[in-house]
Design a protein around this nucleic acid. Structure first.
Lengths: 194, 194, 194, 194
DNA sequence: AATGAATGAGTCTTCATTCAT
DNA sequence: GATGAATGAAGACTCATTCAT
């Protein structure tokens, strides 16, 4: 009985997780709704109770994943530290999120370059905007960074972190804290005001 | 009529260009072979004389595009200059290639995150490897850069350039030479040995 | 709340009316049970307390509508008048019923040409048979009409009235009493013993 | 070989005939495209080479059937005879068309009361308009008929003929020439100028 | 009685690929 | 080489119906 209470959003979340796991590996087109359903343990029609279409499911998953990433990123932030220290901590958190959630990383990379991102361009994780983007804006406004348009900053950072995380995953390597710091310093040195 | 004689490779290239243009705008899945054929002015069956499958067509197009990009990049290189100057020139060339060939940029970004890239992982532009990768390796070996794995370098660079080019294209802006230099310096400052 | 007590047949009738309104506009196939339920203000499952299936709902609605039409038709009948006068009055009533209840007219026309009519051929409005058919039979037996099989009479009459009513509705016209009389005289002149 | 020449429209016409036969018996909704294909001896996808959608197939079939009916109707017309004789001949031809092509009759009746008729309202058999409607207009303009709007005339006539043809078919009766004349005289007496 | 989440068979439609001409 | 009609497997999505609450 109590399980039910905890489970009241169970099917919707099961569908989201199923989609994330499959799309991360097979791509949008390679992942039929029927497989998503089977993998989630629900009937194909059930998906359509929660999401009006495959596109809507994908775009809602985008918010879902971005929210989780934002939480993971912000978790490592300690506002009492210096901005540079905070920046490094935030970057390390994002890097770790990618490495620990490769499906999420693959999904996000695919989403960004897909027609869904255009069609559902108005949908964005509020948490990510409020916390992460705000954090970067602070760095820009307080002249820690070069005078870069903030819309350029985000993909630049993402590109480097994704490249490093993909590399680590594909090589089945373990990166030491120092290795990760090295990666983040590529970003920091690139964008910091010299 | 005589044109046909001179045109003996015309159809193959027409198919490649048609594919590039359509996939750049609509994505792989959004671009049926029938549309590629019509857009190229050939019959659907004709494509299969030149390419055994859609996947093979896509992956051959990848080589084709990467070759053209390599040519564009190397074109601006003057080995008599300093490495830093050469690096900046090469980056600016790549940036310009993206801005002037948005279909190519979109295609490459999609390809990299698609199942095709895994399936045809063994196929790579020889020209790009020989010229561009070699150029970067030189920089690493001669200690112009931080001690970064070269496989990490390429996507890091690509990420920043694509981000900037996409941004320029989406905003319908014109970037001055100085703006572009600013972008490249993000890369340079990030990876150069401090 | 008390309304519910008076309303004990309310839901069943709400479903019937909801179905009539939607099917009249969208057709049987264009009207899902879920929409019928929502439009009636009940849950989808509730419909199945009152009707074992969609087909049964449709066929019961047929009886319901035919009953209401029979009442409207007979209402205008004054047995003390001449048969011809009564015939005209009855026809005018039916015509008016169609114009005032276009959903009912559309529903009936669709029903007659649908598989439901065959499947539920045994179901017919008793009121319509007893009152309206009987009235026509009287006309045949008393030689007011040509020697027409009564089963031919009904659709002939219906065809002309529906044609005229549809025409009026589609043109957003108002027909005067004289116009309507003209229509009925097409029927009368066609079937009366010359 | 010669067969092929005669067969060059074979598949398209096979699909039309298959659709007519199935929809006449099962209704639009009761007839899946897959069954139409199998019944026509073609693959499901083949239908979509000739018709962009089920709705387009249905509406093109409407033109096809109406054209054939118009031909059958006009075939029996002899312009040298009196208008009344011609009218009776034309009506008898239409009646016979219905009886000999019940699938066509059923299809037309369903089409008229379906959403397709609204959606594709702009499509009509040119042959029917030019020949049959023109013939009726002549009767109106030359005062053979009551002063009825011609848009009312057509469905009135259709209604009576369909009623009689359906009745004959459902009873498995044979109507003598005299019986059919009786039916037509219902129409004629109804609409002729008294 | 009433609910509405869940089901899954069935529908229309797409599209990579083949092959007779 | 070139064509494009034909194929049919596979996909997204719908909806009548059920059943636990």
């Amino acid at each position: 009985m109590n399980v039910q209470l905890h489970d009241c959003f169970g099917k919707k979340e099961a569908v989201l997780k199923s989609t994330l796991s499959l799309v991360g590996k097979q791509g949008f087109h390679g992942t039929p709704m029927s497989q998503i359903a089977k993998n989630a343990g629900v009937a194909a029609g059930t998906i359509y109770h929660y999401f009006p279409s495959k596109g809507a499911l994908i775009s809602e998953l985008y918010i879902y994943v971005k929210d989780r990433m934002a939480k993971a990123i912000i978790d490592g932030d300690d506002p009492s530290k210096s901005y540079k220290e905070r920046f490094f901590a935030v970057m390390v958190s994002q890097y770790r999120f990618y490495v620990e959630n490769p499906d999420s990383m693959n999904f996000l990379e695919q989403y960004i370059n897909s027609p869904y991102a255009q069609e559902y361009a108005h949908l964005e994780s509020q948490l990510f905007v409020e916390k992460v983007i705000t954090f970067f804006k602070y760095g820009i406004e307080n002249a820690y960074f070069k005078n870069i348009d903030p819309r350029l900053l985000a993909p630049t950072i993402r590109g480097t972190l994704v490249a490093a995380a993909s590399f680590q995953l594909s090589q089945h390597m373990l990166f030491s804290d120092e290795d990760i710091n090295e990666v983040v310093s590529i970003i920091w040195d690139g964008i910091k005001r010299q």
